[in-house]
Amino acid sequence: MVRPRYFFSETFISLRRNFFMGFTAITTVAITLFVVGFFTIIVYDIQGIISSVESEVELAVYLEDEISEELKDYIEKEVLSWEETDSVNYVSKDQALERFREQNEGSDILKEIEGNPLPASFEITLSSPEKIDQVALRFYDKDGNYIEGVNDVIYGKNYVNKLFSITAIVGTIALLIIIVLLLAAIVLIFNTIRLSIYARRKEIEVMKLVGATNWFVRVPFLFEGFFEGFVGSVISIILLYFVGNFLLIRGERVIVDTMRIKELAIVGSSGVVLYVYIGVAVLGGLIGILSSAIALRRYVKI
């Protein structure tokens, strides 16, 4: 009962007959999926940028000048034992001064420094930067004062929090855009198939009259939907590969230059792009078949 030749020829006859509708559907899928794919890669890239920024976020714990060696060692050990801790770097008073001199070379401010006013500190980097607030709190006691030996705790609190909320907002917006675009694609393919069914209603009537099973009537339309979705997705992959990559690499260059970030998940170098391509192809085919199925449910009551 499986007649692939029949189904294929029926599919292509129908595609030829409804060329412009099919063309519209394919174009819509191509553009939609291109934008969806492009957004996905951008979101991924932004995440990459953010995580490389995040990894540079550190907590500076300034110590009192008269801290004992034992207390200092105790704090270091304690910090190292936390699971959020990635590394701890002790900066002595001398090293701090040295660094300050390097950073302000040639400046008048150096002349005004007498002795060493700079405190010693621990520079702590975290393996989970979003927990920076919690970690910072551990340097305070119950009453909100610094624990013994600690003079000050500094980290870009607002900066870090802003970063996290931007990530969330960008992600949500991108998701919304993706959903809206996908819906648009579904509606358009749905309409194409519906018109194609309408154009062939006589044929369907005859098919049912001579005893065609429901599946026999449906399969050519499902093929048509799949074909339109799949071809659309292939076109969008080609667009992503040439146009998308070009735009992204340009954009990244700008970001890298302005933000002075050392390393980035550069497009094309990561496996993500491949996953996006595969996802786009699968999505295209699925949208096609799904829209056809919905259109058939409504218009081919058997």
């Binding site: 009962m1 007649r3 029949y6 005859v206 098919m207 001579v210 005893g211 065609a212 026999f216």
Partner: peptide, 8 residues
């Protein structure tokens, strides 16, 4: 032929 195709 359509009738016969439809019934396989």
């Amino acid at each position: 032929a359509f009738t016969l195709e439809v019934i396989g």
